[in-house]
Amino acid sequence: MSKDFEIILAADIGGTRARFALFETGGGVRLAHRVELETARHASFAGLLQAALEALAGHGTVPSAAVLAVAGPVERGRFCRPPNIAYAMDLDTLEPGLLPAHSVLINDFAAQAHGCRLFGQERSQEVLPGAMDPSLTQAVLGPGTGLGKAALVPDGRGGYVVCGSEGGHAAFPFNGPEEQRFQDFVLEITGEPYVRWEGVVSGQGLALLHRFLSGRKVSPAEAEASLEASSPVCGWFARLLGRACRDYVLEVMATGGLFISGGVAARNPVLLEHPEFTNEFRLSATHARLLGNVPVRLVRDQDVGLWGAATVGAALLGRCP
């Protein structure tokens, strides 16, 4: 293979779906082939990788690097124990030769952040107006199986640093007696010591909210299917998502804008069109003006994380994406 043409294996492995793709380098990166698997159908990390590689093997290409974005905290680029996946991911225990020598794990929302920096403007739609400004800190947040967060921070040299977060596992701030009753409900159902952000602002949280308000136990997919702008579930979830976005923007001072990603938001833009989202996002006793100037965009393209992982792979090979 020509030294001007190499292949990168990129992955975006979430608690529900695992996307894998082969990208070609050379004048940037180009998506060549893509497969999508159900994460829970596989009993191990190695089994998931084998299934993905077999599905991609017919294309006759051997990757020179692999960047696997996973939904959890990554240690030294080699190990992750995702909170919403039944198995750990350890590159050092894989069969030799299964992946190329240049292989790393990165957090899934770090990959989302890299992808949003490249394509966020063109592959997203406006939620709240304003010009995204990459010279300032930008935030990326998204509800899916869990709740992911990352920040894009200028490095002072014209580039940026991606700062990951496990803030989805911090304690959720409930307000008022109605929300306190919901808090008690979630604690009783989950048995956890406190309600986490992603226990509320996620697909699982949406199903719990539906159960709390309607008395009917449903799956996350069923809860999504029943969302309507006029429903109490939609109003509640829009408010809680607005709170998640507001608090993270303030935590990292993301005055350059916020990208909202993640499957729940991407599939249900009605949540961001609801007035409860905007009202909660801009609600602040001290920084209402600052929040009123922060632009917000919804990333509908669910492959942005794959593109972000591919750009990290290109950097591993010394190639500018």
Rank of each mutant, 00 (worst) to 15 (best):
F5D: 11
W236I: 01
E198V: 07
E54L: 08
L272V: 04
K149P: 00
L56C: 10
V62P: 06
E224M: 13
G115K: 07
G256C: 03
G242S: 05
L128N: 00
G168W: 04
C163S: 10
G97L: 05
G313C: 10
L128A: 12
N84G: 02
G164E: 11
C116D: 15
G176N: 00
G26D: 12
D4M: 10
D301C: 07
S124P: 09
S214Y: 03
A113T: 01
A225G: 14
F172Y: 15
I7W: 14
N175T: 09
L298C: 04
P295A: 02
L227G: 01
C116F: 11
G142V: 03
S284F: 01
P269W: 06
G58M: 10
E198I: 06
A131N: 12
P83D: 02
L290R: 06
V74H: 06
R297V: 02
G313Q: 12
A244F: 04
F23Y: 12
L99V: 04
R123H: 15
D303E: 12
V67T: 06
S135V: 02
A18T: 11
L240K: 08
R76G: 08
D184W: 06
R117Y: 14
I13V: 12
T190P: 01
R78L: 10
D184C: 14
H102W: 12
F277G: 07
D301N: 06
E24W: 01
R34M: 13
C320N: 11
G203H: 03
L227E: 01
V29I: 11
Q183E: 15
G203A: 11
V29F: 03
L227W: 00
L152W: 05
P173E: 02
L213F: 02
V296C: 03
D133L: 06
L31S: 12
R117E: 14
G60Q: 08
H59S: 00
A238T: 03
H169I: 09
L98I: 05
T255C: 08
A40I: 10
C234R: 07
V67G: 10
C80N: 02
E54W: 00
F281H: 02
T311E: 14
R246H: 00
P232L: 10
R41P: 00
M89H: 01
E251R: 03
G58R: 08
H287S: 13
A52T: 01
V304S: 07
N84Y: 02
K217A: 15
E178Q: 15
V35L: 05
V140H: 08
E198K: 05
V140Y: 12
N279Q: 15
A71H: 05
L306N: 08
H114L: 10
A88M: 13
R181F: 06
G26P: 09
F259Q: 02
F259M: 12
L99T: 03
G146T: 04
V104T: 15
G176M: 04
D155T: 11
Y248A: 00
Y87C: 07
V104F: 03
P321W: 14
V296F: 05
P220I: 01
D184N: 15
V304Y: 13
D303H: 04
E36A: 13
G77M: 08
V29K: 04
A229S: 15
V201Q: 05
V299T: 14
